Amino acid sequence: MTAGESQERTDLSDLVASRMKELELSYRRLEELCVDPEVEAAGPAAEPLWKRGTLENLAKRRRIKTPDLPQLRALAAGLQLELDQVRAAAGAQFLGIDTVWSADGKVRALVAGFREMDPEDQDKVLALMQSRRRIRRGG
């Protein structure tokens, strides 16, 4: 697959597109907002870590280079989202790693290809997560 072609998974692309719509952001405005908060806290010289064209390609489900952690922090800041939400979407889109939560929302696991597993195997993963939770609680 070459640059500009569609991604197989579009978790991050879909998150960016929907959040931009919710916040009524243009690509140019989102570019301006995509500053890594860790760098911004160090001083006024912080620069945006995303270019307008890359954001547009991402939102339109075109292939882009896998973003690094500072870029994900900057994107989360620009979209006013928690870093974990952006990181989970990026992991799914670029690495095929799904974030899976226990029924009570207290245990999280990163599972390669969870969405592609048959329901029986998904249930096994969830049961393992629940058993691990019981072990940690001591009961």
Score class of each variant (00 low, 15 high):
residue 139 G to I: 00
residue 98 D to A: 09
residue 125 V to R: 00
residue 117 M to A: 03
residue 5 E to I: 05
residue 27 Y to M: 09
residue 89 A to C: 09
residue 14 D to P: 03
residue 31 E to I: 01
residue 111 V to A: 02
residue 133 R to A: 14
residue 139 G to C: 00
residue 104 D to S: 03
residue 68 D to T: 14
residue 72 L to T: 08
residue 101 W to G: 01
residue 13 S to K: 07
residue 106 K to Q: 12
residue 99 T to H: 06
residue 65 K to N: 14
residue 1 M to F: 10
residue 125 V to G: 02
residue 57 N to I: 04
residue 53 G to T: 14
residue 131 S to R: 12
residue 109 A to I: 01
residue 4 G to D: 04
residue 121 D to C: 10
residue 113 G to T: 02
residue 85 Q to E: 13
residue 119 P to R: 10
residue 86 V to E: 03
residue 93 Q to K: 07
residue 64 I to D: 01
residue 129 M to V: 02
residue 67 P to I: 11
residue 101 W to P: 02
residue 108 R to A: 05
residue 18 S to R: 15
residue 111 V to M: 02
residue 2 T to M: 06
residue 15 L to Y: 03
residue 123 D to Q: 14
residue 41 A to D: 08
residue 105 G to M: 03
residue 49 L to Y: 10
residue 139 G to W: 00
residue 128 L to I: 13
residue 24 E to D: 15
residue 53 G to W: 03
residue 70 P to C: 09
residue 75 L to S: 04
residue 113 G to H: 01
residue 53 G to D: 13
residue 128 L to A: 15
residue 105 G to F: 04
residue 103 A to M: 03
residue 136 R to A: 14
residue 133 R to H: 12
residue 44 P to W: 01
residue 40 E to K: 15
residue 46 A to T: 04
residue 98 D to Y: 02
residue 27 Y to E: 06
residue 59 A to M: 07
residue 104 D to C: 04
residue 117 M to I: 00
residue 58 L to S: 07
residue 101 W to R: 12
residue 91 G to V: 04
residue 82 E to C: 06
residue 70 P to S: 10
residue 77 A to C: 11
residue 60 K to C: 12
residue 85 Q to L: 11
residue 24 E to F: 09
residue 115 R to Q: 09
residue 93 Q to H: 07
residue 115 R to E: 11
residue 98 D to K: 02
residue 55 L to H: 08
residue 54 T to L: 09
residue 113 G to D: 06
residue 14 D to N: 14
residue 42 A to D: 13
residue 87 R to K: 12
residue 24 E to P: 00
residue 60 K to Q: 13
residue 23 L to F: 03
residue 127 A to H: 07
residue 53 G to Q: 12
residue 77 A to R: 14
residue 74 A to R: 05
residue 14 D to Y: 04
residue 41 A to L: 07
residue 100 V to R: 00
residue 32 E to V: 08
residue 24 E to N: 15
residue 38 E to D: 14
residue 65 K to E: 14
residue 21 K to D: 11
residue 111 V to L: 00
residue 8 E to I: 14
residue 132 R to P: 01
residue 3 A to E: 10
residue 130 Q to T: 15
residue 67 P to Q: 11
residue 50 W to V: 10
residue 108 R to I: 05
residue 115 R to Y: 02
residue 126 L to S: 00
residue 138 G to Q: 00
residue 92 A to P: 09
residue 123 D to W: 04
residue 86 V to W: 02
residue 20 M to E: 04
